[in-house]
């Protein structure tokens, strides 16, 4: 057996594959949001990690102050944070449309620093625990590993959202408008479609996806002001590997990078924070537009 040759029992490998898939589900939802935003607004949204963190804090706030539990937060937190995103787009990002997207990158990066800094000041860096919802406590022994029910739920929920997003963009009329808006916004406007409204909504949707991932993460990690900054760079690498703006690419790459990272954690744990960037460098050399991107 290959696994025996490498010195690891198969159950360890199966476990790591599954864990990689779980982490990959987070990467998928986050990079999906980034891909949607980049595709339609041409903005490299560096505030994505901070908005993901806001999703987790919104969950906490909804539970503590309004008595809305986890399941309610799954709906309301993305709506609230999505609305914040709509505000950001209207007030700030809109002004940058049409100029070099370096400016969008700088603005969103600055926003991320301000939001995270404020939350560290208010809540400290250790974070606040959020309990796993009662229905998903405990787990099941799969023979090769103990799978907490909650982690299983994360994969199911993430995949459902990814498929729904893909369907929305590729199979509905709104999706067709959105894609047309990316290709030629002027022509679309000439047909009487409100393109500015469309881009605002697209940004709001991308942000809501980040917040959704934040809700999913709340019971796993601490609800922590820095939870997004640890993740965002990896997620960007995932988007670059998949191809900027490619929805399918973001999902597939997110999952597969999770698995690659998971396996690295077994074979060479010290390199697990680097491996995705190595893959990114290789992909950029061989296919500059990314695995699923169309060459410009």
């Amino acid at each position: 057996m290959l696994t025996d040759l490498l010195g690891f029992p198969p159950q360890v490998l199966f476990g790591q594959l599954l864990l990689g898939l779980i982490n990959g589900a987070f990467y998928a939802v986050l990079s999906l949001g980034l891909a949607v935003i980049f595709g339609l607004l041409n903005i490299v949204n560096f505030a994505h990690g901070a908005l993901y963190m806001l999703g987790a804090f919104a969950t906490l706030g909804l539970t503590q102050y309004l008595g809305i539990g986890y399941w309610g937060a799954l709906i309301f937190a993305p709506l609230i944070v999505g609305a914040i995103g709509v505000g950001l787009e209207r007030v700030l990002l809109r002004r940058l449309s049409g100029i070099d997207h370096l400016y969008g990158l700088l603005l969103t990066f600055g926003l991320a620093l301000v939001i995270e800094g404020t939350f560290v000041k208010l809540f400290g860096a250790s974070g606040i625990p959020y309990p796993t919802p009662e229905a998903l406590q405990g787990g099941v022994n799969l023979g090769f590993m103990f799978l907490p029910f909650y982690r299983g739920w994360v994969v199911v929920a993430s995949l459902a959202v990814c498929v729904a997003t893909w369907y929305l963009f590729e199979r509905t009329k709104i999706g067709a408008y959105l894609r047309a808006g990316t290709e030629n916004p002027r022509l679309l406007q000439a047909f009487g479609v409100n393109v500015p409204l469309l881009t605002t909504l697209a940004y709001g949707y991308g942000v809501a996806l980040a917040a959704f991932a934040g809700v999913l993460a709340a019971p796993i990690t601490q609800v922590n002001p820095l939870m997004g900054s640890n993740l965002i760079i990896v997620v960007f690498a995932v988007v670059v590997i998949g191809g900027m703006g490619s929805i399918m690419g973001a999902v597939v790459t997110g999952l597969s990078m999770g698995v690659i990272e998971g396996l690295t954690k077994v074979f060479w744990p010290e390199a697990s924070s680097t491996v995705i960037f190595v893959v990114m460098a290789i992909v950029l050399v061989l296919r500059p537009a990314g695995l699923f991107g169309k060459p410009a």
Partner: peptide, 20 residues
């Protein structure tokens, strides 16, 4: 032992190695 990156956010993989 297993050396994990600093800081790390997900410890599930390292925990399973420790368990094994």
């Amino acid at each position: 032992s297993v050396k994990h990156p600093f800081p790390a956010s997900d410890f599930s993989s390292f925990m399973l190695q420790a368990q094994a």
